[in-house]
Nucleic acid binder design. Structure first.
Lengths: 231, 231
DNA sequence: CGACTGCTTGATGTTGCTCAACGTGCGTGG
DNA sequence: CCACGCACGTTGAGCAACATCAAGCAGTCG
């Protein structure tokens, strides 16, 4: 295990993701020895699909995307995450690989935690393990719903879904700056960038949103929700 | 907790799914008190989406499908599972609901296990918990890949994927009887039954498969794999 | 200033859905 | 026993949804 210690410590950290809140003082002290803090600039890759998963990432602040890519350069953004959040990809209990690429969409403040130390705590603290199980399970549920959306809704519904996700789960606001390019919005909704563009201008023309570059204000949330629900 | 004891016991069971193999004798004895065995006929619902998740299911023999349904009667088959397999849906650590409907595709032999007893073992036996984590994680990985397939491949690739899945993961054979109707194959591949039908006859005409009702024999596996990979 | 990147918009092409017709078992009731 | 309805599968024609291709338009960076 790597042992690097840096700025501050886990005991005092107020950006802990939910699982780490379940740890005892001595456990926080322990994990503090096996983590280090890094700041990623917007656009930087935090880890890459198919590389060995030697760390778990605790994102304290910032927004990041989880992307699957294949050989044909077709990408799918699986999820957008906002700190505080624990990224302990499914590979660490299966094949010790990352199964998606994690990329910073804004500046990201994160702790890189040794996976062996993390697993040790999973085995020793059942509260911690319970919370991790709960996190994993919630991710699965969200992902089931997303798959349903991507396969059964059409363009307008999917873009509406994306707007709702940003508004309610990422920014908690009706006005926000989308941290994705049109291309990336396409990768998130399973559309081309052109389709995304057309739908956003359509929404603007119908006065459902204000649109200025990546700045979006949701004007008629009910209508957006209706569009999302009717596919 | 319900306490019903029936035919045989967990200690002697040779159809245990992987997690239960990690249990000690006294734990098997314990769980044996909180489970009962049921046989489901082909087509019967084992549990239904949105109902309270009071049990986990250990499928010892048979094939079942996990389906998400919405109010518009649009269905998505998330997964096809074959015993021995543990179905401890993601809801049990989140909101105590089932998030999909589980339906028997063949006769299914299963043990219904009290969820509280199951959770107790998760907390008390870290090997058991580890294996469960591993199962959950593997499911996530498979589901990520499936989402990628459903959003990025087109019809022929998706049907090819389905055939490969049945051939390699369910039946371990080149010849098998698909336990799904054309409609259900559509719900699994995100297509309409008409499209599925057309593609299967196309595959037959191209001599990639033999096709007689639901009996399928894969004649040219390499070609099918190529089709799958090229989308 | 020119090259480049990202966004928008329009024209055109393709994919896959919808709808309708028809065939084939299969169970049910007269 | 046959007649009938019903569920399921197949096939074709037409259409809607979405992608592709191409052009133009900022903004930005050297």
């Amino acid at each position: 295990m790597i042992n690097i210690h840096q700025n501050g410590n886990c005991m005092e950290c107020d950006k802990k993701c939910s699982a780490f809140k379940r740890l005892q003082l001595e456990e926080l002290n322990y994990i503090n020895q096996y983590r280090f803090h890094i700041t990623y600039k917007k656009g930087e890759i935090i880890f890459k699909q198919n590389t060995p998963a030697s760390n778990v990432i605790s994102v304290s602040r910032g927004i990041a995307k989880c992307t699957m890519e294949d050989k044909n350069n077709k990408n799918l953004i699986l999820n957008i995450v906002k700190g505080p959040a624990l990224i302990a990809g499914p590979g660490i209990f299966v094949d010790n690989k990352y199964h998606y690429t994690l990329t910073a969409l804004t500046d990201v403040y994160a702790c890189i935690i040794d996976v062996l130390a993390f697993k040790k705590l999973i085995r020793e603290n059942t509260d911690f393990a319970d919370q991790y199980l709960s996190d994993l399970s919630l991710q699965s549920i969200n992902h089931y719903n997303r798959t349903f959306c991507l396969t059964h809704k059409q363009m307008h519904g999917r873009v509406a879904d994306a707007l709702i996700h940003f508004s309610q789960h990422i920014f908690n606001a009706n006005q926000f700056e989308i941290p994705l390019s049109r291309q990336e919005l396409g990768e998130y909704t399973g559309l081309t960038k052109e389709s995304v563009s057309r739908i956003l201008t359509k929404f603007r023309d119908d006065e459902l949103i204000n649109l200025e570059g990546n700045n979006i204000e949701i004007l008629n949330k009910e209508k957006i929700i209706t569009i999302s629900e009717n596919g």
